[in-house]
Design a protein around this nucleic acid. Structure first.
Length: 150
DNA sequence: GCCAACGTTGGC
DNA sequence: GCCAACGTTGGC
């Protein structure tokens, strides 16, 4: 089982939204590196849900990958903000996975807590200027982040 | 293939 | 709202 961290702006889609929806197709990723991570996901992989671009950025919940990657339908929807005219039906450019709610953390593990920790040294999340919205975590990073919860 | 211009992300 | 960082686009 692999581990991942997925960012979402809570104004757009929060951990409470995921809790209410139970399972959500993670549409709208339009970055090749993030897409490649989505394609590497397998059902049952662990996901930490991260709130970005908000008052208190940080890890707020746990989810699981609920499907293999499949084509993101919004890329073909001309009415969608995520429509991509250059993507062909025969060879879809963008993929998504279904993400299933597991639990909310007892508290937000804020970004500031994760910075300057040797445990997180190699994690792209804490590197300055990193904008990757889907990124892998090592087992050690996953365990460390969750150990901060209590 | 290079690189300047531009747009977006995301912390602060 | 600002701005640093980075990805993408497009002219050459």
């Amino acid at each position: 089982m692999n581990h991942w961290l997925m960012k979402s702006e809570p104004d757009e889609f929060s951990i409470d939204d995921l809790k209410a929806r139970k399972t959500e197709p993670w549409s709208g990723v339009r970055n090749y590196q993030a897409r490649n991570h989505l394609r590497a996901m397998r059902q049952g992989d662990g996901v930490l849900f991260y709130h970005s671009s908000c008052g208190v950025p940080g890890v707020v919940g746990v989810a699981t990958v609920a499907s293999e990657a499949y084509p993101d339908p919004t890329q073909f929807d001309v009415k969608s903000d995520y429509f991509d005219a250059k993507s062909a039906l025969a060879e879809p450019r963008w993929s998504l996975v279904d993400v299933k709610f597991k639990r909310k953390l007892k508290r937000t593990i804020v970004l500031a807590e994760l910075k300057d920790r040797v445990e997180m040294r190699d994690c792209p999340l804490i590197q300055r200027g990193n904008r990757l919205s889907v990124l892998p975590l090592t087992q050690a990073q996953w365990d460390f982040i969750l150990s901060l919860e209590r």
